[in-house]
Nucleic acid binder design. Sequence first.
DNA 1: GCGACAG
DNA 2: ATCTTGTCGC
Length: 270
Amino acid sequence: MDVVRPEFVPDPSLSTAEMEALQRDIADVAVFDDDHGVDPAAVAIDGPVGQSTLGEAGDGAADEPDADRPLVAGVDQAFVGDRAVSAVVVLRGRTVVERAFAVEPTEIPYVPGLLSFREGGAILSAFAELDADPDLVFVDGSGRIHYREAGLATHVGVTLDVPTVGVAKNLLCGTPRESLDRKLPEGTRVPIDADGDVETAERGTCIGYAVQTRQYESETQYVNPLLVSPGHRVGTETAADLVLATAAGYKLPEPTRVADSYADELKSEV
DNA sequence: GCGACAG
DNA sequence: ATCTTGTCGC
């Protein structure tokens, strides 16, 4: 996959003010509505909990049950010393059809709100190595849940012009409509509203959801929800639907989970 | 000055 | 993100 909007490629050498200005430009062209053709039901991974399997080279369409299903990718980063490893995995249903990666030196430290300038370059390089063009990409981090509505998932989605969903484990900004500090049942979603920290959105606008993909049986112990938001060309509600549909018995959606372990695997080899 | 802050 | 042992549970 190649960059479609070169003017948005993250440049770590920009000043903070320039980075923030670029994010505003990105948010201006980002589409937080459905424009993707992916039916959550078509990407749903159901049945018993099981690991995604690597597709075999000789698989023909005849015995491939997922042949007509959408391609969904997951991307995740790991760090080795001063280098970032970005790993992309493409799934069709539960089958891994392609993997790609890139290793690049980290130019700048992590700064909340400017994550895409630290990790975006490696991600784009990994996608440049990818032959497939996925119908949807899950990115590890926020999308619209961001100070300028231009988080990592939005930045990557707009630059590649591919539908993306942001999946984060922690909340960057915004206010949950109800407390998340309690045990939420599996399948629950709690709206995240823009607050004073979100400069570009009217206060009260729903910019994402806390999504409970998994929960324990136990009464006292509980799993924290994921924080899901549109990256690009996906609506807020649909972003939550897609995450719930692709969570196969684990907290993380399957594409993200598989990209996670691939990044770990690469870390040992690099 | 103090608190908050994706990965 | 990363540094790390044991431990609870299916």
